[in-house]
Design a protein around this nucleic acid. Structure first.
Length: 227
DNA sequence: CTGTAATAACCTTTTACTTCA
DNA sequence: CTTGAAGTAAAAGGTTATTAC
């Protein structure tokens, strides 16, 4: 059969970790719809696995990766890893989240598990890590969204007030100091704070006239707005 | 050189079991 | 004792990269 780099004791972290990661972004986007379309109408078939005694003892020897047997009733009995086994697996995971076949076999032998079980444990462990990270990212984005919503509300209010002021007292409006606001360059979409951005080219009058392009970091065509 | 089939490794989703409040 | 939620081992089915032909 094929002789992979791992079999030679080489790490394939680039090809086996990075590449799938790039593709799983697409998977995240498209998998749910696909899964929905392909969702079976009937429950998935039950599958036989390692017998309860073998699993519980965790001492099942024998050839690697062979399918386990079934309980007499075909029911799936679930292995619970001991604390020691979990600790060793966790340590190993911290060291390297993916295993090459040699590491996997060594770990399996050390723990008295099949290497398939070690492999599955690592798969699930990676999935849990990713899920946790997704939750963290989601929480962060939620907070960002709340902050931006609040900022948007504040800015809308400020715009309203300025418009009202301009109508009521144009002279006073022209001579007031610039508002505490953020300005986004329409060209490069960078946001700058007017108050501490002293080296930008825009003037207060520019901004009052809606000429926001003046703060751009690169030259852009500025078309004064009709007001 | 290119296309293709086989294979390994990994990922995501789902299922089923265990534990615990 | 029952029940529902959470945690997790394992299976299923998918994608991608590699290799041989």
């Amino acid at each position: 059969m094929m002789e992979r780099a791992e079999d030679l004791g080489l790490s394939l972290s680039l090809s086996s970790s990075l590449a799938p990661r790039t593709h799983h972004v697409a998977m995240l986007l498209h998998a749910p719809e696909r899964r929905f379309l392909e969702m079976p109408l009937l429950p998935a078939k039950r599958v036989c696995e390692v017998s309860a005694d073998e699993e519980r003892s965790g001492q099942r020897g024998g050839s690697d990766d062979e399918d386990g047997g079934c309980g007499m009733d075909g029911s799936r009995k679930k292995l619970r890893l001991s604390k020691d086994q979990s600790a060793v697996l966790e340590d190993s995971f911290r060291e390297h989240p993916t295993l090459n076949p040699r590491q996997k076999a060594a770990l399996a032998q050390q723990l008295g598990l099949r290497s398939r079980q070690v492999e599955v444990w690592f798969q699930n462990r990676r999935a849990r890590t990713k899920l946790k990270q997704t939750e963290v990212d989601c929480e962060f984005l939620k907070r960002c969204c709340e902050t931006l919503t609040e900022e948007n509300r504040r800015l809308q209010k400020e715009v309203q007030e300025l418009r009202a002021l301009k109508l009521v007292s144009p002279h006073h409006y022209m001579h007031m100091s610039p508002p505490t606001t953020l300005t986004m360059c329409p060209s490069c979409e960078r946001v700058s704070n007017n108050n501490n951005n002293n080296n930008n080219n825009s003037t207060t009058a520019d901004r009052r006239n809606g000429v926001e392009g003046a703060i751009c970091h690169r030259p852009i065509a500025v078309r004064p707005q009709q007001s």
